[in-house]
């Protein structure tokens, strides 16, 4: 699993701007959103936690369709399927690699973007922290979608149509945590639910994704 993880990380970094693209996209979308809403800083500050969450979610989806497609095209997915390593572990490792190159940097960069949106002081921590907790679930759900649409024509398009509705619970709890956090209110319930969601996704979805990969590789 470590081997797989380090291979995927190495490949993403060598492909150039592995970390960079998601962040750049995130940055541009938040900027566009602010342009769309207008310069009313009070309004921006109010919607900042949710807006940052939605933009991060979209950025997470950006490179998702490549997760298995590259390994599928060069035949390594076939080889991994018959290798002495459970496919579930392969899925988990690849999702983890995706999170490290996408979700993690996105979460870490949000405090910086928060400045543009004039986040309340407590908001910096909670937006960043809720993304840190929630994005692993996003990567894992996306991996399931990527496995489902592997090798299909218009796979990338289909992926977003299938995956975005699955993102609803994570988004709701995550955005709720950051909103409550920014306003300095009690956020225990949604925070625990967000953690539960991430843990649930990480423990169950690898099985679903692996099952789907096996079907797709037949």
């Amino acid at each position: 699993m470590i081997a797989l993880l380090s291979r995927d990380l190495k490949l993403t970094i060598r492909a150039g701007g592995g970390f960079g693209f998601a962040i750049l996209f995130f940055f541009i979308v938040t900027l566009l959103l602010a342009f769309g809403i207008g310069p009313d800083i009070q309004l921006l500050r109010k919607i900042a936690p949710g807006a940052l969450w939605v933009c991060a979610l979209l950025a997470c989806l950006l490179s998702m369709d490549r997760l298995f497609a590259l390994d599928f095209e060069d035949g390594s997915l076939d080889l991994l399927l018959v290798a002495p390593i459970p496919l579930e572990v392969v899925v988990f490792a690849k999702s983890l690699a995706h999170w490290i190159t996408t979700g993690l940097p996105l979460a870490l960069i949000t405090p910086l973007l928060g400045i543009f949106w004039d986040l309340p002081e407590k908001g910096y921590f909670w937006v960043c922290f809720s993304l840190l907790v929630g994005t692993p679930a996003l990567s894992m759900i996306g991996a399931f979608g990527a496995a489902l649409t592997l090798g299909l024509r218009r796979g990338g398009l289909l992926l977003s149509v299938l995956v975005l509705p699955l993102y609803v619970p994570t988004l709701i709890f995550g955005a709720e945590v950051s909103r409550l956090g920014a306003e300095g209110l009690d956020l225990q319930t949604p925070f625990l639910l967000l953690i539960a969601l991430t843990l649930g996704a990480l423990s169950l979805l690898p099985f679903a994704a692996a099952a789907v990969l096996r079907i797709n590789l037949r």
Partner: peptide
């Protein structure tokens, strides 16, 4: 498989939206 996973997420979404 999509239907099964989707069902789980549909129920989750229902609760999340209620919340």
């Amino acid at each position: 498989v999509l239907c099964i996973v989707g069902s789980v997420f549909a129920v989750l979404s229902r609760y999340a939206v209620n919340f």
